[in-house]
Nucleic acid binder design. Structure first.
Lengths: 218, 218
DNA sequence: TTATTATTTTTGGCTAACCAAAAAATTAAT
DNA sequence: ATTAATTTTTTGGTTAGCCAAAAATAATAA
């Protein structure tokens, strides 16, 4: 098996199993990897041979510890590159994912180390997603996208992932300031729009906006 | 044909034909690409179909103008990355080639543009090799490696490609200072060692040293 | 529990890129 | 101009990664 193929499978399994080695099935993988399930069957068999996953016929697949280690490393490379592209080269956050999908496959530990150092060895990318360290250790954060916020909880607005002027104007208009504390009042059932209290005022924001706001759980 | 395969063939043909569309033969290509000649035969036929090269049976292959354009672009990407790795990330000049071999295949014009800008849009890499611009135009330089120097000619020492302390000490000992003007007195037939006049003193240097010194033709 | 639906696996087939060995063509040497 | 050496091409075969369609299995609903 080609190393890039392996990496793409492991990474996808990792994401689908949400880090906690939940079993993933072939259809999920096929959808994400844009291949048909038959192809996945073949692949996971080979990955099982390589002891990177445990594949049980007609049941599902999960990462072994060495598969997980490898997946974590790919995630690290991906997020370091994304952060680098955004912070050092001035790419928009919407552009970096696609480029990082390619860059993540360049396996040169020293390169990732240098990039990481230049960035100050961050533990989180601008999305708020954690960057695994060299050993694969993930620092768990209390950062979330506002779209994942829970009713009644309090948060502090920490940043945004959309830097368009349109969005920044939107925030200004609604008086959503970075650093402000907020409390979730309602989450609409039918469209997931959120009503929150910010600086004593009640503000309602769209799900799209909530998706672009990073907040810290208080 | 896979784009990476195409790129590797075009780049290799470009280098072997020294930029001036000299005909290259299959064995040369096979050697450089680490495949057997039969594989090259197959490949150049396909590249001919794609109108990227002109392949004449049992005779040889040369780039078409669109093939050449593509090759120049790959060379550009390679050298931009090399320069970036060396100048911005602090890699040694001996390390960058290998990494750039992978990075050069990431096709994202904006990425190369940003890297180039950050470097001040250089026309030459630290080797003294020219970096083609976006349109493929190459600025021809009067920089050479001292190992390519010609008898009786005068040069100015512009830099080195080996930054080891051992080499820098060697230069110091022989009083070869950056910026100094030199004149080539003799080039030994049997071992290519060079005797030159520098600051009125006669200095003899090894071919290995000459390989690491960049000089400007005066 | 049987039928229906969905998922998974098997089977047969394809293409790209490679190699080994044989055959053909070219080039060099006597 | 023949022979010898080299290079090139052809032929047959391999592996990785993919797909389509059929068969097997599992899950869901009636």
């Amino acid at each position: 098996m080609q190393s890039e193929t392996i990496e793409n499978y492991l990474k996808t399994i990792y994401h689908l199993s949400a880090g906690n080695s939940t079993i993933v099935n072939n259809k999920q993988l096929a959808d994400k990897l844009k291949v048909i399930p038959a192809t996945v069957t073949e692949a996971v068999k080979k990955l099982h041979e390589l002891k990177l996953v445990i594949y049980e016929k007609s049941y599902g697949t999960r990462l072994t510890s060495s598969g997980s280690k490898m997946a974590l490393n790919i995630v690290r490379r991906h997020r370091i590159w994304e952060t680098y592209l955004a912070n050092e080269l001035g790419f928009g956050w919407d552009e970096v994912h696609e480029i990082a999908e390619e860059l993540e496959h360049i396996k040169n530990d020293k390169l990732i180390k240098k990039l990481s150092e230049k960035l100050g060895n961050p533990s989180f990318d601008p999305h708020g997603d954690p960057i695994p360290d060299e050993k694969g250790k993930i620092q768990k954060s209390n950062f979330i996208k506002l779209s994942e916020a829970k009713l009644k909880n309090s948060y502090k607005i920490m940043g945004v992932t959309d830097h368009s002027t349109a969005f920044l104007k939107y925030l200004e208009k609604h008086q959503l300031i970075i650093g402000a504390s907020i409390n979730i009042k309602t989450i609409e059932e039918f469209d997931n729009s959120i009503t929150l209290i910010c600086q004593k005022k009640e503000v309602s924001i769209s799900p799209k906006a909530a998706e672009s706001i990073i907040a810290e759980t208080l």
